[in-house]
């Protein structure tokens, strides 16, 4: 997802993660990381209250992922 494009589409809510194209949910076979990212996306559906919000997830490629929404 490219936030500069998504912000012009007028979506209800979106999340941006600084991962390479092709890996929006993380690295292959890193099941726990993928679960955390999907879980965060679903929780953001509840916590984002302002229409059009693009939330940047704080995770970085190839680094340890611990949910910040626990």
């Amino acid at each position: 997802m490219k936030p500069e494009i998504t912000s012009h589409v007028q979506v209800p809510r979106a999340a941006y993660i600084r991962f390479p194209l092709g890996n929006p949910i993380g690295e292959s076979f890193k099941k726990n990381d993928q679960k955390i990212i999907l879980s965060d996306l679903l929780k953001l559906c509840k916590t984002i209250k302002s229409p059009g919000t693009i939330f940047e997830l704080p995770y970085r490629w190839k680094r340890t992922i611990q949910s910040f929404l626990e």
Partner: peptide, 11 residues
């Protein structure tokens, strides 16, 4: 190799 990178059905 792992479709969950773009389609997280297992998660």
């Amino acid at each position: 190799q792992d479709i969950n990178c773009v389609f997280p059905i297992d998660a």
